[in-house]
Design a protein around this nucleic acid. Sequence first.
DNA 1: TCAAAAGTGTTGAGCGTACACCCATGC
DNA 2: GCATGGGTGTACGCTCAACACTTTTGA
Lengths: 227, 227
Amino acid sequence: MSTTYKKPGVTVDCVVFGLDEEDLKIILIERGLEPFKGRWALPGGFVHIDESLEAAAMRELREETGVENVFLEQLYTFGDVDRDPRERVISVAYYALVNLSGHKIKAATDARSAAWFSVDDIPKLAFDHNRIFDVALKRLRGKVRYEPIGFELLPEKFTLGQLQRMYEKILEQDIDKRNFRKKILGMELLKELDEVQMDVAHRAARLYKFDERKYRQLKEKGFNFEI
Amino acid sequence: MSTTYKKPGVTVDCVVFGLDEEDLKIILIERGLEPFKGRWALPGGFVHIDESLEAAAMRELREETGVENVFLEQLYTFGDVDRDPRERVISVAYYALVNLSGHKIKAATDARSAAWFSVDDIPKLAFDHNRIFDVALKRLRGKVRYEPIGFELLPEKFTLGQLQRMYEKILEQDIDKRNFRKKILGMELLKELDEVQMDVAHRAARLYKFDERKYRQLKEKGFNFEI
DNA sequence: TCAAAAGTGTTGAGCGTACACCCATGC
DNA sequence: GCATGGGTGTACGCTCAACACTTTTGA
């Protein structure tokens, strides 16, 4: 049955988002081979016959960027007939959220170079990767409002100021400080720590942790996170 | 490069939702071949080498159920290594919304039989199709709240009562009639027609149409649909 | 002492929610 | 005339949005 059909190739591609003090960024890889040799591209590659799609995405991420143990979620599957000039290739795209201060710009393990690019300044990419990136950014902007995934972009311990700036950068809008703090603290999803920031040239802010366990409890009871 | 890897098979599977006076339903197909011969399954099949994923989903829908020209959206891609007992197969799942009164229960064009099943009464399906169905139902329940996709389940001209019952069936909760009407009419997305229901054993209700054009205009201005 | 960010409450407006009765039609 | 769904308004509580000054710390 299936052997009577020519099979398409299957790849995974990853849009890895990171946040620093300036910008929301993604990781790009410089291609060392044709097609699109020298062009920037999303990290990714072919799915092995004995690994799941998510395992393939994690493997490519580790091999090409050194990124490991991060939030990873399937984005969309791109299957236009001519998206790869060589042959028919279907790409299952994933997006990842990493804490950029924890994952400093790492070189790829092979010869290709990896770098962080601001989402406002993405060059022309290989294949249909610009489109994949657009879908990923749109998904992040939509999802960050009603699921507490934004915490994945911050260090484990963070200040309310960092949290607010994270939302301001992703959503590209200013947020009122007092209203934001009232709302986020009112959800009771943050554990207030007995620690404050160190080495800052102004009043040190209190540190908080996201309470994953409590979120799951509330969610089961019908609570909906919303910014 | 890619030729050094064994390729997985790629299929599409479709969860086709329809609504009638009783229930939210999906179409299932009785399998005529091994594996899972005689078991019910989602309509679907292998993606041809020269057709896009969406085209494959539309073709399978037409061939197996006679359904055409309906709302169709990609759901998720299922790629566990052992989801097909024969060989490695990756399935790109889609979900469709059809107006059940317009698409009466059609037999499949080939020997296999197709039938509507209430979502509350889905049998044990072939492959991982129960899981695909679960994801589809969850997606529909989530998405119907903040995108006006529910109209796809109704005839072009519908009453406010039909619209409300559609939401009540999908969301499995009662809605206050006066508040619902106030809210939905307040959005100004419905065109009130100069027509009323025919042949009903009670006061005939006014008919409305969803104003697709107006929705797109409002959406561009930042309007968010929400039930 | 200056710069830079942290921290903190109140008010008004708009929105969501709860709630009960009369109307029109076919049988 | 009865059964069935269609159609309608108000009042209350809560949430959201707007808004400015004092505190702490390091340089």
